[in-house]
Design a protein around this nucleic acid. Structure first.
Length: 479
RNA sequence: GCCGGUGUAGCUCAGUUGGUUAGAGCGCCUGACUGUGGAUCAGGAGGUCCCCGGUUCGAGUCCGGGCACCGGUACCA
């Protein structure tokens, strides 16, 4: 026995077999269509980047970054990208002649060397769209409008895009008397609101607590009076954008800079109103924070109301300083990112994508070696008519195994053609779904054989037309 | 990172106070049924009992260490 290698994948990595790939491709194509309609252009960048590009020049400043490092023959310091935003910033800085605004979309895998978790992998796909070099609030507006249009195109059922802004949160800090240096810590805790609830957030903002596993959660040591103000802020309802803005104006009446920020948010909200994105779809919800430190303006995220357990499936915001690390110059940008894997899980959960495994709609079986020219001819006849067709290329002789093969791959139709059919100038077409349904009711094999459910014989010349008709009928039945 | 749990066939798992040649269901393959998927029946293939060490006449079983995975929790640019 030769020594064999155990087939396996490293932790957090997985294969996507055809059913998952077909569902994913449909989803990505649907999203892409929306963003090309909006006039965003595609971009591809290498999976591997220089480590200093990924980390920023002051390496070590953000320690504990879960970057996969990569070796090349030149021994350069390289790593796999962990998002698509940093490579975008690099591209914008590197291609100085690129006309701006640069509005691009990119769908590609990214890698993070984190501990894998349910629904979290070390290799996963993001679908990002960003407008770089834009200050106008219309850019923020179109990102959020695009989020809505995308979710509608994916038929996810009711959803809610919620947005707020770093400016509002900064006003909150001023309002509560918290120094701006603490902003990252405070926002990180506020971001957990959906997940852990207000009571734990309060504890984490003040004294900290010991969680269920006995792990201590350190508190931020804020005063109770400060947290009271935060809570008062968080209670501002998110049902009506105009009303929320009114309340914010009242709450922040004495806070410097708040009025300007609220005016910006109002312009976005008004654009959205005038385009028909009403409060049911887009809400101004000051309880969302988003953990990322680099956001500087509006932040937004989307949840599916029929699948809330999947959390935010689509999120983003404005980040006006990210390109600075490469150019030293401030370039405003706004964008959003879709967690393709998470959204796909939600779509599967909602039954929006099927479990299709095969691209072929017809399997042409081969029963008689003497008739191979006929099988080949039929196959290409179907293909040239635009019907995805597979010719059985395995070694099984009889139709039993070949039908089993069609069944295993979920091919909806099978063609049976032997000397019987040839003599009479006909071809047998079998509807696999009809047969499968009938089989459930039949216990006796002989009946099953005699009945040949879902089969029909048609003249050889009607092959393409009949296949087309049967597929159309199946398509309707399947809906 | 921390707490707890679990590692036995492709999958889900059983395996007695430590005792001969380690089992079941599902799946897979073959046949009954040489032109029909499902069901049924018969047969077959498939094992480093996670790894290393220890105790013992004897270890899947007990002990020590390691690793992996699962659940919870934290972190997540």
């Amino acid at each position: 026995m030769p020594e064999t290698v155990e087939p396996r994948t490293s932790r957090g990595l997985r294969d996507l077999l055809s059913d998952q790939m077909l569902a994913r491709q449909w989803m990505i194509e649907t999203i892409r269509n929306v963003y090309e309609l909006y006039g965003f252009v595609p971009l591809s960048t290498p999976a591997i980047e220089f480590l200093d590009v990924l980390r920023g020049s002051e390496a070590g400043q953000e320690a504990q970054q879960s970057i996969f490092t990569v070796q090349n023959p030149e021994n350069e310091a390289l790593g796999l990208r962990f998002d698509l935003t940093v490579p975008l910033a690099r591209v914008v800085a590197q291609y100085r002649e690129l006309p701006r605004p640069f509005r691009r979309y990119q769908v590609a895998p990214v890698w993070r060397a984190d501990k894998p978790d349910k629904g979290r992998f070390r290799e996963f796909t993001q679908f990002d769209l960003d407008s770089v070099g834009v200050e106008s609030e219309i850019a923020d507006t179109e990102i959020m409008a695009g989020m809505c249009d995308t979710l509608r195109a994916l038929k996810v059922g009711p959803f809610r895009v919620r947005f707020s802004s770093r400016g509002i949160l900064n006003a909150l800090l001023a309002f509560a008397g918290i120094p701006q240096e603490r902003s990252a810590d405070v926002f990180r805790v506020l971001d957990k609101l959906d997940k852990v609830g207000p009571a734990k957030v309060r504890l984490e903002l003040t004294t900290g607590y010991v969680d269920a596993s006995g792990d201590p959660i350190r508190g931020l040591g804020l005063e109770n009076a400060q947290v009271d103000k935060i809570e008062r802020f968080l209670q501002i309802p998110a049902t009506d954008r105009r009303a929320t803005l009114d309340e914010l104006r009242a709450t922040f009446s004495g806070v410097e800079g708040a009025a300007d920020e609220l005016a910006k948010i109002e312009r976005i909200s008004n654009h959205l109103y005038s385009l028909g994105y009403a409060d049911a779809e887009v809400s101004l919800d000051v309880s969302i924070a988003r953990g990322l430190a680099y956001y500087t303006g509006p932040v937004f995220e989307a949840n599916l109301l029929d699948a809330p357990q999947f959390g935010s499936v689509f999120g983003g915001g404005r980040y006006d300083e990210l390109v600075m690390r490469f150019l030293g110059e401030k370039i405003p940008a706004v964008g959003a990112s879709i967690g393709v894997d998470r959204l796909l899980s939600a779509l599967v959960h909602l039954g929006r994508v099927g479990a299709q495994k095969s691209t072929a709609k017809v399997l042409i079986s081969r029963m008689d070696p003497a008739l191979e020219p006929d099988y080949v001819a039929m196959t290409w006849e179907l293909r040239r008519a635009g019907i995805p067709a597979e010719l059985y290329l395995g070694t099984a002789k009889g139709p039993g195994k070949q039908l089993k093969y069609a069944d295993a791959w979920g091919v909806p139709l099978a063609v049976l053609y032997g000397s019987n059919e040839k003599e009479r100038g006909v071809v047998t077409l079998k509807d696999m779904d009809a047969g499968r349904r009938r089989a459930e009711a039949l216990a006796n094999r002989q009946e099953w054989l005699d009945e040949r459910p879902g089969q029909r014989e048609v003249p050889r010349g009607d092959l393409v037309a009949t296949v087309r008709e049967m597929l159309a009928a199946q398509g309707e039945a399947g809906r």
